[in-house]
C-alpha cells in the first residue's frame, strides 16, 4: 500500500478515536495488537488470507479483542481487516500512534522487555528516556521474551540496547 493510503487510514482511525474520546486507550491497545500481529505468523496468516471471507476474518478479530479491548479498538481493527488491508495494519497503527504522539508533542518510545514493566518503572523509564533524548516520550512497552532479559528502547532513530539477546549476539559474533 502506498504511504498516502496508509496515512489516510491512520488519519481516519485517529480522528475516530479522538472523536470517541478514547484516543489514549485506543492508541495503546492498537499498538499492542500490532505487535502481536507482527510476532504471530498464525494470526497474520489468518487475518490476511484473502481466501478467508471478510466476515470470517472480522469474526476472528472480535473473538480476540472482544473482552480485551475497547469497542472502538475492535471496530477499527475489524474495519481495516474487513477492507482487505490486513497486511498494512502494523504500518497504519504505527502511523496512528506517531500522529497521536505528535498531537501531544511527544515522541514514540518503543520499549521491548522480557517481562512486563510496572507503572512505576514505566514512569521512571519515560523520564530517563526524556532526559537522554531531550524529548518527552510516549512510552509503548512490548513484552518480548526473545530479548531474554533487559530492555531495548527505540526513540526515533535512536536505539538504546541493554538486552541479554544483544550481548549474546555480540558474544557469538566474537566467538
Amino acid at each position: 500500500m502506498s504511504d498516502a493510503r496508509i496515512e489516510g487510514y491512520a488519519r481516519a482511525l485517529f480522528e475516530i478515536a479522538r472523536a470517541e474520546g478514547t484516543l489514549d486507550e485506543v492508541e495503546d491497545e492498537l499498538f499492542r495488537f500490532a505487535r502481536s500481529f507482527e510476532s504471530s505468523d498464525a494470526l497474520r496468516n489468518a487475518l490476511t488470507d484473502e481466501m478467508v471471507p471478510a466476515d470470517r476474518r472480522q469474526g476472528i478479530v472480535e473473538s480476540l479483542l472482544g473482552d480485551r479491548a475497547t469497542a472502538t479498538t475492535m471496530q477499527l481493527v475489524s474495519m481495516v481487516i474487513g477492507s482487505g488491508r490486513g497486511r498494512d495494519l502494523p504500518e497504519i497503527i504505527d502511523s496512528l500512534v506517531a500522529r497521536a504522539s505528535r498531537s501531544k508533542d511527544l515522541e514514540v518510545a518503543e520499549v521491548r522487555s522480557a517481562v512486563a514493566l510496572t507503572d512505576d518503572q514505566q514512569t521512571r523509564l519515560a523520564a530517563a528516556l526524556a532526559n537522554a533524548t531531550g524529548q518527552q516520550v510516549n512510552l509503548k512497552v512490548v513484552v518480548d521474551p526473545s530479548v531474554i532479559g533487559g530492555i531495548v528502547a527505540t526513540v526515533g532513530d535512536t536505539v538504546i540496547d541493554g538486552t541479554v539477546r544483544t550481548r549474546l549476539d555480540q558474544l557469538k559474533s566474537r566467538l
Binding site: A114, L117, A127, G149, G162
Partner: peptide
C-alpha cells in the same frame, strides 16, 4: 534469569539511561 534478576536488569537500564544525557 529469575524475576529478581529481570527486575534488577530493568532497574540498571533505567538508571543507566537516566544518568546519560
Amino acid at each position: 534469569l529469575d524475576d529478581a534478576a529481570q527486575q534488577q536488569m530493568i532497574e540498571d537500564f533505567i538508571q543507566k539511561v537516566g544518568s546519560s544525557s
